[in-house]
Design a protein around this nucleic acid. Structure first.
Lengths: 215, 215
DNA sequence: GGGCGCAATTTGTGATCACATGGGCGCATG
DNA sequence: CATGCGCCCATGTGATCACAAATTGCGCCC
């Protein structure tokens, strides 16, 4: 609903395929371990193997997909150690992004974050895991976009990408029936302009969901 | 009908090309803004456009190369803001990696780090910028390999990759005539098992070189 | 002499083909 | 009936071709 201004860009075939798969992976719509073939993807999207190969290689380069020894491409099944690492990366980088966004966080931004948060609550009520993940990431990305730090944002998005398939498994397993209470703490810290509590709120929000799996 | 019978041991062509270019970029052997063409690279490495395209797309996905609007691939010329961002990422992640490596840092590792450090000093004496960058990164990577954190290491290597071309320009401009004194502080903190000073030493070592450019 | 437009060449994109390889499945044999 | 072996198909890899767009350079006109 709150989509960004969609530009009528003529997108290259491999790029459309890349973005489609990327969103599917990040939102947890693809199960871990699921194999993907070049010809299968090409046929599915009406293109030849070449764009499919480029899209897949790109996703492999970002860590979203795993390349087996024989060249087979599958969504990775993350070990607990890897999940812990990725969670640590989130805990390191996201508070920094939030802190950098804080001076630029005006009231309009906070309102938009609140709106995303209510959409998130609706996803929780509907037990819709994909919508939950999507709105949750949208909440964070909307905040971090204000940080004016594209390199950091790109790094953290690749981390989200790697966590996508397991986040789905995680959130369906946890049977969450409450919206993330830390999001309200984030909003409160933003309104108060309190950087230390903002950093803390972001850090705990990021780690609280993921630490359950490693334990 | 290839020309010669394939060798019994061979790595995939696109992978060799990728690794070669990746090292060249990370070590600063390629000037920023330099354009690279698919057919040119293919001819240079004796392969067709297909492997060259894959290698370049992979490097673009990692942020090592920039894809212009028309599809041309060049090494990016980083703005000062982007350099500051990447330096901040190094300052965030590398102390964490060092701290995780600390409990596993035995004497043999410290000896190897010292050896790399002397090689680094030799590169400084010879005014060899590429050797300087290479040994400097080797110092850090050797330490971080002990952290047993492959995801974090992969992230920080992509950061190094993005900084490669500008590091070259930076270090030739600064005309460094001294080896990094913070490396000795890192070694001392490792020997003492002192995590706080290790984190501090790594952070200052990482930021000291790069803050000059942004200032 | 300089600016502008057109053409030729360069270059990326996508499709198709040939080939090697690995995996899966069935069949034969102990 | 179980196990191993071999064949066939699916799949990734790399090369080549056709095409469109962009870039470059040359010549023409003012």
């Amino acid at each position: 609903m709150t989509t960004i201004t969609t530009r009528p860009i003529e997108t290259a075939a491999h790029d459309r395929l890349y973005r489609t798969l990327r969103l599917q992976i990040m939102h947890g719509e693809i199960m871990p371990g699921q194999p993907m073939t070049l010809r299968g993807l090409g046929k599915q999207f009406g293109v030849s193997m070449t764009p499919a190969r480029e899209a897949l290689r790109r996703l492999v380069a970002e860590g979203a997909l795993m390349l087996s020894s024989s060249g087979r491409v599958t969504t990775p099944e993350l070990s607990n150690e890897r999940i812990e690492e990725l969670a640590a990366l989130r805990a390191l980088i996201e508070p920094e992004l939030a802190a950098r966004a804080l001076p630029r966080a005006h009231l309009a931004l906070i309102d938009r974050l609140s709106a995303i948060n209510t959409a998130n609550a609706e996803a929780v009520a509907k037990q819709d895991a994909v919508a939950y993940i999507r709105t949750n990431l949208e909440f964070h990305r909307t905040l971090y976009l204000r940080a004016q730090a594209p390199a950091m944002l790109a790094v953290i998005e690749t981390v989200w990408l790697q966590l996508g398939p397991t986040m789905r498994a995680l959130y369906t397993k946890l049977r969450r029936n409450e919206p993330p209470r830390h999001h309200r703490m984030i909003l409160a810290a933003l309104r108060a302009g309190d950087e230390p509590s903002l950093r803390l709120a972001v850090r705990t929000d990021v780690t609280q969901g993921l630490r359950h799996l490693a334990g």
